[in-house]
Amino acid sequence: MNSLILQTTTRYLLPLLLLFSIFLFGRGHNEPGGGFVAGLVAAAPFALYSIAFGAREARRVLRIDPRWFIGFGLLVALTAGLLGVLLGRPFFSGVWTYLVVPGLGPIDLGTPMLFDLGVYVGVFGVTLTIIFAMEEAD
């Protein structure tokens, strides 16, 4: 698909969608959103990129093999589960702290959010691994 409009749009969409995905991720604990959806949204521009320019080009823009994100995401998620264990509590126990951001007040930070981050990264990697591979199918 060698559409000039698609190619141009994709270039502009990339940063926008990435920002949007971070927004979705951040609000997920309190409003609709969350790691899974955010991961999909983050993957979308690269997917579009591969459709517009081909998978090879998209891989180049991404720089890192998407398979690596899968392992990393899973590892982060597992680590989030294990942090509670290190403190002598059951697997997946929420460990919470908060961060005072000037102007916003205290923000809760906890292992469930780290876990959600793992989901985010993992889903990103999964989606792109699948899309790229299918794009490249001979």
């Binding site: 398979r67 899968i70 392992g71 597992l78 589960g81 294990l82």
Partner: peptide, 22 residues
């Protein structure tokens, strides 16, 4: 009881490590 999660965590950790060591 920590021993209950080990049979899940150990293979997962191995699996993930192997993925990362592709």
């Amino acid at each position: 009881s920590l021993v209950l999660i080990l049979p899940i965590v150990i293979p997962m950790l191995s699996g993930v490590s192997i993925l990362l060591a592709f």
